[in-house]
Design a protein around this nucleic acid. Sequence first.
RNA 1: GGAGGGGUGGCCGAGCGGUCAAUGGCAGCAGACUGUAAAUCUGCCGGGUUUUCCCUACGUUGGUUCAAAUCCAACCCCCUCCA
Length: 405
Amino acid sequence: MTYKSEFLRVLDERGYLHQITDADALDAAAVAGVVPAYVGFDCTAPSLHIGNLVSIMMLRKLQQSGHKPIVLLGGGTTKVGDPSGKDAGRQLLDDSRIAGNMATIKRIFERFLVFGDGPTDAVMVNNADWLDKLEYIPFLRDIGRHFSINRMLTFDSVKLRLDREQPLSFLEFNYMILQAYDYLELSRRFGCRLQMGGSDQWGNIVNGTDLIRRVDSKDAFGLTTPLITTSDGAKMGKTANGAVWLHEDSLPSYDYWQFWRNTQDADVGKFMRLFTEIPEAEIRRYEALEGAEINTAKKALADAATALCRGPEAAAAAAETARATFEAGEAGGDLPSLSIGADGIGLLDALVGLNMAASKGEARRLIRGGGVKVDDVTVSDEALHLPGAAKLSVGKKRHGVLVAG
RNA sequence: GGAGGGGUGGCCGAGCGGUCAAUGGCAGCAGACUGUAAAUCUGCCGGGUUUUCCCUACGUUGGUUCAAAUCCAACCCCCUCCA
């Protein structure tokens, strides 16, 4: 369908839309005036990762098209600890850790959104502000009465668990209620009329819109994004070292750039639409490239995505390091480095020290398998001693440098 | 509270007294081929080391045994049914 509002038109064109509760009404609302909208984020870690990026970009599009983004951090729910999965012992975070995480997370958002007090400025709130104060009996009476267990049991998040005979604690069962309550609270505080999230959030979001309708007799909307997978079906966002973090303290910009550079051919266009602001016409041109030419497109993707998240300078530095390393065969300045003393260092220790191998045993295996190069020459001597500066490589992609001194 | 089933390496899942650091599969890493892609084939895939050696590991703690992931006991947790 064609949308009248800039907001939905952009989301549609760029591939962000999966489901909308009432597309026509939301479209009309977005034409008529400012729509405050929110996305909730967990704050168990000091950084968000690529999996959150679609939602972040969506908030950015929202603001760019003249609406108000609300970033909701789950300080309250984080404190309780998400009981999902089978390992019961996930540690509970204390207030100071959560506060610390929230501070760094806010810095990520500042790259994507404009915060302030204006009508379309972004705001960031913490659901601990209201969840902490809830009183059980009044909450049950005012809110709990609107939830039917029969219906809750039909939601995928619950149903799948039960069908698979996986544990589902009462606490977790209550998550959807708490999330619905968050939406109600934001509706009251900021006039929030839209909640967005990943497709797995659909049930929770719909609960929120229903609750607002029942309690306050107001219309509220929900919108979800498709689950972003790579073209071979895997969830995106993993590298050799784990999650692709958005904050530079958790993942160097060079690695961030490399993540995008290594996108599969088939995903380049999709990722450009979702994670960059390259104009559609230009994306089409990139998509038309064939064979090895598509590497140009991947570099453009990496440049643009890194510039958005890490800033143009970090992106340029990463791009230059990659160029020097891969195309000129030199050691680029952004590569991980390890300084060594006058005595030099053993090859195994160097590999471990540069995080290029998790253990000496792994380093040995890599050497035996012919995967390690020193200054571009494959080595076979595990006991090799490196006297001074050198470039180390594991495979084709992972490089590091030893710096004398 | 009662009865039954179950807890194994990042995940799934075999093993059910020695030959078990533990079959398979997935994921991951490396090699070959390429384009820092995909697919395919090959190798690796707990840690250490002076590599037919030593640690650590099959929910937890004890016990039986020359020997336990495997048997016994207690405890913890999960699932199903009953109350």
